[in-house]
Design a protein around this nucleic acid. Sequence first.
RNA 1: UGAGUAAAUCAGAUGAUCGCGGGCGCCGGGCCGAAAGGUGGCGUCUGAGGAAAGUCCGAGCUCCGCAGGGCAGGGUGCUGGGUAAUACCCAGUGGGGGCGACCCCAAGGAAAGUGCCACAGAAAUGUAGACCGCCACUUCCCAAGUGGUAAGGAUGGAACGGUGCGGUAAGAGCGCACCAGCGGCCGGGUGACCGGCCGGCUAGGUAAACCCCACCUGGAGCAAGACCGAAUAGGGGAACAUUUGCGGCGGCCCGCCGUUGCUUCCCGGGUAAGGUCGCAUGAGUCGCGCUGGCAACAGCCGUCCCAGAUAGAUGAUCAUCCACGACAGAACUCGGCUUAUGAUUUGCUCACUGA
RNA 2: UGCGGGAUGGUGUAGUGGUAGCACAGGUGACUCUGGAUCAUCUAGCCUAGGUUCGAGCCCUGGUCCCGCAG
Length: 114
Amino acid sequence: MTVINKIKKNKDYRKVYSCGKSVADRYLVLFFWVNNLETSRFGFTASKKIGNAVVRNRVRRLFKEVCRLNINKFPVGFDYVLLARNAIVGRKYQQVEESLLKLLKNITSRRGQT
RNA sequence: UGAGUAAAUCAGAUGAUCGCGGGCGCCGGGCCGAAAGGUGGCGUCUGAGGAAAGUCCGAGCUCCGCAGGGCAGGGUGCUGGGUAAUACCCAGUGGGGGCGACCCCAAGGAAAGUGCCACAGAAAUGUAGACCGCCACUUCCCAAGUGGUAAGGAUGGAACGGUGCGGUAAGAGCGCACCAGCGGCCGGGUGACCGGCCGGCUAGGUAAACCCCACCUGGAGCAAGACCGAAUAGGGGAACAUUUGCGGCGGCCCGCCGUUGCUUCCCGGGUAAGGUCGCAUGAGUCGCGCUGGCAACAGCCGUCCCAGAUAGAUGAUCAUCCACGACAGAACUCGGCUUAUGAUUUGCUCACUGA
RNA sequence: UGCGGGAUGGUGUAGUGGUAGCACAGGUGACUCUGGAUCAUCUAGCCUAGGUUCGAGCCCUGGUCCCGCAG
């Protein structure tokens, strides 16, 4: 079983936000950027605007679960940051998973084109 | 049945699969790192709250050499008790609200002193003050003037005790009775205070204004701090000052301590995964245990070990059941307070209806 | 996580317990052939809930929101 590597330093997050590209729908924003490593790394964020600590924890756990179960669908060698948006509050696992897979498909097809 | 009031309890449950943090046992000597150190597999146990929240109080713990004295500052404020301590809790006193069960109160001192009381009003604390009234006197009358008067009117949140009788030219504690307030004595109570008697008759409000009185109070906070390892540096330059100067102990003074160059500014180094501990046995949980106490609580006995992350662990799926699940996530640890919030149960009160 | 500070018209800010001001912005009118400038005038406010007081923007208590600091 592969373990999820997490992005830990604020500097790495900054790099992904400023240099990376992003795709989004009404539930979440997905940032990504080449990290020059052999593995992918993930970061899960939910700002204070989303809600209180319970809500933010819930959202981050959903992200974590979705990434864990679909880790083989992510292209290797990237840093990914998942940012929660307001509409995600109260959503179920299936809705989040569906949303993320759609975004991933979007990325891979675009990479195929260019 | 409805409305209310006081208290107590629970915080979706059970099973299966995958996933995450921690403890313990066994196996392994590989990988990462400069080092300190970290990391794996299997088994087993365990893993958020009543408020974990707000950070409003109080403590423990750590550092500031010691935590010393005084002043200033801050806090508390009916009484007695509980506690490690408190602004908390319990029992009472006084006051207020409610038909009631019951609830609420920063509730010391206004004759120690100072300030303020806008506008209105004659006058806002001075035994001051006469606008309209009332009464007496003077001028021939209308009316005006002088004096007396704070009972009535008017103003105001508040007008120098209130009500009644007497008294008087009209009035006034001027006199008397009762009530409120003040002082003294006696009795009860540990005390706040309560009850009774006597006295001279008057003292406005505001202390969540300054203040007085009594009591308490050093400062910072786990990003506190300690240890291990690496690197750097006991670096450089400029200005100032030249002797008891400078610095530290929250402010000032005393007192104490450190350093002989010290202070200020600039450059350089570091913040690119440093690590480990602090960090979970404690003012601990439970028992309708026993003893003392009205109670808060204390003592004794038994019982249990109950999260310890460090970018931060609790989630997903399936099945069954119900009321279809509110507020909400530990971050050094406790005791309170306040705020948010779903459901259930019990006692008591009031109203209505029926027997 | 711990500590500290703040909230006044649309914006930036004053305000010893006694009618809430000022500047800019906005509306209306005047001046002008028109606009600008100028003049006059109007609108709109004390974060919120209680308490103390005769009376709170100010004093006290609870809550909400915003901002800053940290080896």
